[in-house]
Each structure stands twice: as structure tokens, then as C-alpha cells.
Design a binder for these strands. Structure first.
Lengths: 231, 231
DNA sequence: AACGTCGTTCCAATAGACGGAACACCCGGT
DNA sequence: ACCGGGTGTTCCGTCTATTGGAACGACGTT
């Protein structure tokens, strides 16, 4: 007795898992860069959930300090997320070596240096050291960029990052920006992330060859520090 | 008709809210400082939940990249938490001014400078700049300390922080450590957090008066930058 | 080989989440 | 002043979705 008719439509993205948790997390993901607070109505519009449902979930998240209610009634992300995020960062072996590696690269190039890991179809900036120049690529830790674009993205989405070597892109992610990046590997030869620099296109074009060398050396050094397999 | 008998016992910690979300978050809170990964059994022991329940919740959290499954089957916190934590930090107006304020204080004193906010019965380190000295208070961003202890804790748990002025403690949080802290205020005169330094007791005792002045000046300057009310 | 411990899957029962309706509220417009 | 559209909030019956065992296979140890 095979009843193929009343299948509950597993079309796509079967949202497997605990629905209430998915909903609660979707509230957190409603917050975007540069938005300190959101109102209930905004959250409802973005997530598509009923306001009563949202309020109940927000109350739960608030108890855990994952969100904070503002005096004016609007909602903001809570400090517990910062704590959990810090615990994540500390658990990454790479994290310990990033400040020095990035500072050295930023110093040598005069551009903003950053380290990226893949996260699904995006890439996440784990750490960065800003260029000393006032004209610079002013990105933040925690920034989330679409995966394929930019030098770092090329590395993280490559089928074989080892074959790529150093990648330089000019105006790919942003017309005025250029970037140079190279892969960093961890123990066992696994891709640990992408190390690179980014800045105004003209400055990087002018010293492209020099920067390729510096980024390659920085990535190799960081790989070595992580106990990674270079070849 | 006052029936005082069958009250549903509001003893303490009435777990109001969505149970599934509470449970899921409790899994994240099972992770502690310095523990990169946990096994299912460890999480079960700490949270007291059934393994089947935990596995289902972890699966949901994994889809959202709030946890990551390691190749060996154990579990770690996920990168999405880092992103959310970064968004929280960026939303804090204080955050923008902290690096320079802390760097200046660390430079002037030679000790580790840090900034703390209250979070329930704990205090959370939002940012810190390490002392250049090899012997130093080596705390991390995201560190969570019990509220009452230490100079920063005194500030954050004071009934009237304004009355306290600069607080110095010697060996309170840790016998070998001393700290000097002062309150920072935001717009409207609300307590924004505590700014301070900490380091080996002997070094701080030797220059206590000087440090009090420096910390007070740093806190006043930071308050000014935040558009805060000083008096 | 026997045991303990681990992670994993399955499913019926029911606790508990959902979502709609109804409410109080604050503004701005007319 | 009166209304209208927009807030945020509470309440409660329905039924879905979560739970928590039991049962299983796979390791590792004794």
C-alpha cells in the first residue's frame, strides 16, 4: 500500500529539527550590520512570524540575555551572544596567532589585513587589523560577505585551494576595492581559512607583485604556526 | 476568596518561556572557558537532558551554525555565535571608543586595561588591552567573572556608583592580583560600565595613587566621548 | 567473550507551543 | 475632538510538534 499522494511535500530545504528553536534563532538573524535595535513590527516583517509568537520567543531569549529590551521597548542583541562568540573564537587554534600575523601583514603592506573562514554560502571575518591609512577598507570582525566574490572568497570556494596559490582580485567585490589573499592550512592539511589584505584599488594595483609575495609569506608562516601541512 | 494554598509554587526561577528554546540555549551554556569541544555524554551530564533530546536540539543548532560537529563526533560552538557576538559589540556605542581608551590606559600604567558591563550576577569583559609586561593579568574578552569581587565588580554592583569614585582592591578576586576601576556613564547618566586596570598586586600597590588618578581620568574621558553625564 | 559506554534511531503520548482574536495604547491627520 | 492606522500586549482553545524512553549497533576496555 504505497500512498504517494499525501506526502507532506519535501520540496526543498526540509526544515528538519526543532521548530521552536529555528524560530527563535531566526529572530536573532533578523539583526543586520549597523542596526542596533529592531522593533517588534520590524522583526515580524522580516521573519514572517506572528507577533505573539515572536514576543514569547523574545521573552525566552531575554531571560538568557541573548536579546535585551531597550528602555524604548525595542529589542537589541544581548551580551550573552558576545560571550558565546568569544568562547567560539578562543576555541579556534588559529585565533591565538591571528593578531600578530595580521599586524605584521598590515604593517608591511599598509593595508587592512584580515582572516576569513567559510560559513555556508558566506564567508566570515574572524579577525582583522586596520590599515593605518585613513583611506582603507574599513571592515569589521564578524563581517559576513557573500562567498564567491573577492580574493578571500575565491580561496574559500575553490575546489582545490592548494592549486590556487595567491589570488588577487581588482574591483570584484566592490569596484573601488582590490584584495590579495592566500589559503592557510591546519593540521592534516585541512583548509583553515584565508589570509589577505584589502584596500583601495589603485594602491594595491601599484604594488601588486610585492603584496602577492608578502601575503604568500604571511599565509605560509601562519600555516606553520598552526602546525599545518604546507604542500 | 483568597486561596493561598494551591499556588503553583513560584519559589524561584519560574522557567517561563518556550521550553525548547531554553533547552537549546542551555546546551550552548554548557561550554566553558578553555573547552574547545564537548561530547554528547558530557553535555548530557551537564545539562541533565536526555541524549535523544540533546541530539535533536544540537542538530537544529548545527543547521544554524551555532554549533559545529567535529570530525571525531564531538561538538563545538559554531561561527554564527561569533557573528552575532560581533553584531552585539558593534551595536554598543561604547565599543567604538574602547580600543583607544584602553590602549591609552594600558600604555600609561603598563598594566592590562579592561572594560566591564554587568550581566545578571556576573560581569562580562567587553574589551581589554593586555599589559606589555610578560607578568600580567591575562584575561580575555568575553570573560565572565562573579559580580561582587574585584574593583570592577564593586563598581557594577554598587547601589550608587557615582558615590564610589575610583575603587582599588588588593587581592580580593585573586590573592595575587590587584585592580583599580572607575565607573563610566552614558547619555542620561546611566551606568555604561566599569573601566579599569588589573595586574600583579605588588606592582599596583607601589603606584596605587598614580593609577587611581589615571583610571579616573580615563573613565572621565570615556564618559565624555560617550556623551555621558559626568556628575 | 562479556561488559560498560558511547552515539543513534524510532515512535506513541501528551505537554506545550502556536496563532488568532481582542485589547489598550500612542500618534498624526482632518 | 474625533477618528484611523499603527503600535505592543494578553489571553486561551486547538492540535501540532516535542519529548523521553526503549531498543539498537559499534567501539574499547577489562
Amino acid at each position: 500500500m504505497l500512498d504517494s499522494t499525501d506526502r507532506p511535500a519535501p520540496d526543498r530545504a526540509a526544515p528538519d529539527g526543532v521548530a521552536a528553536v529555528h524560530r527563535a534563532l531566526s529572530l536573532l538573524f533578523a539583526f543586520r550590520e549597523g542596526e542596533a535595535t529592531l522593533t517588534l513590527a520590524e522583526i515580524a516583517a522580516r521573519t514572517g512570524h506572528y507577533k505573539s509568537t515572536i514576543l514569547r520567543l523574545l521573552g525566552t531569549l531575554e531571560q538568557a540575555r541573548c536579546v535585551e529590551r531597550q528602555p524604548d521597548g525595542s529589542w537589541a542583541l544581548g551580551p550573552m551572544l558576545f560571550r558565546l562568540g568569544s568562547l567560539y573564537a578562543q576555541a579556534r587554534p588559529a585565533r591565538r596567532h591571528l593578531p600578530t600575523a595580521l599586524a605584521a601583514l598590515a604593517e608591511a603592506t599598509g593595508e587592512t589585513a584580515s582572516f576569513w573562514i567559510r560559513q555556508g554560502d558566506d564567508r566570515l571575518c574572524l579577525a582583522r587589523v586596520r590599515s593605518p591609512s585613513p583611506i582603507r577598507d574599513d571592515l569589521s570582525e564578524g563581517a559576513l560577505l557573500p562567498l564567491p566574490a573577492g580574493a578571500g572568497g575565491r580561496i574559500l570556494s575553490a575546489a582545490d585551494p592548494r592549486a590556487l596559490g595567491v589570488v588577487a582580485t581588482f574591483g570584484e567585490r566592490n569596484p573601488e576595492t582590490a584584495a590579495v589573499a592566500a589559503a592557510v592550512f591546519g593540521p592534516g592539511g585541512a583548509l583553515a581559512g584565508a589570509l589577505g589584505i584589502s584596500g583601495p584599488r589603485a594602491r594595491i594595483e601599484a604594488r601588486a607583485e610585492e603584496f602577492r609575495t608578502l601575503v604568500a609569506a604571511g599565509a605560509a608562516e601562519l600555516t606553520r604556526r598552526l602546525g599545518g601541512d604546507l604542500r
